[in-house]
Design a protein around this nucleic acid. Structure first.
Lengths: 114, 114
DNA sequence: TATCTTTATCGTAATATTGCAATATTGCAA
DNA sequence: TTGCAATATTGCAATATTACGATAAAGATA
């Protein structure tokens, strides 16, 4: 008969790890970083000119926008002929809190190695 | 003779956009999120047991560690037979500041659309 | 209606990522 | 020295990502 062995190795990552990785992944490309930074820089969010400020063709930009939208980082509102894109503050705040939490925990940690 | 036309479309992304995307990309996978969270959870950074807490084979974990190290998110110190990995606070802080800056700018922005 | 503008989707090629088995490396311990 | 333990590297297959041209869709405008 087999002894029960302490099983530490998990079968999968946690849901939370999958989720945060998914959001972070949406920013893991310079094009999508540039899109967020551009949306941040313009005061209105009427954004029919995103293609003009990126070194990419229109279909490629469209894909990147879709990915950002899919991750909840931007919202798009149809405005007649154009689409008004803007940053979703809640998701950015989630990222901000995630990294702030890590930072805070690090400052509270033992520092007697590395 | 050609007229000079206002050229808004850039040739490439900025260095800063490439850099931040590179760091962010290192966290764009649940395995690497899990590694950071594990390193954060253990008090010492003697970390010879990372493979045991991840649902991945040893070579795969080694690859993920390499990628985190390459992005400056972790540091590895050879400690005799094992390697002592720990989080690089400076890089985490950089991310934290990046997202805090976006958050702050968003709260100061016009909110009359979307 | 016909055409223009804006954005999305499809098809496809090039490249990158991920995972694991096999193997190499390096230090420690018998 | 021999063998073991901890990591890294290599090779390779499967899959994902990225880019762009061509095309489609849908509202605006002549």
């Amino acid at each position: 008969m087999e002894m029960e062995i302490e099983q530490t190795k998990p079968k999968d990552f946690t849901d939370s790890q999958h989720e945060i990785a998914h959001i972070i992944k949406a920013l893991a490309h310079p094009a999508r970083v540039a899109i967020i930074e551009y949306l941040l820089s313009v005061d209105t969010c009427i954004c029919g000119d995103i293609v003009d400020v990126l070194p990419l063709a229109q279909p490629t930009v469209s894909r990147h926008l879709k990915e950002l939208k899919n991750a909840g980082l931007i919202k798009g509102t149809i405005e007649g002929n154009t689409i008004c894109y803007c940053i979703d503050e809640n998701t950015i705040e989630e990222l901000q809190k995630y990294f702030t939490n890590i930072s805070v925990k690090l400052t509270l940690k033992n520092k007697n190695c590395c």
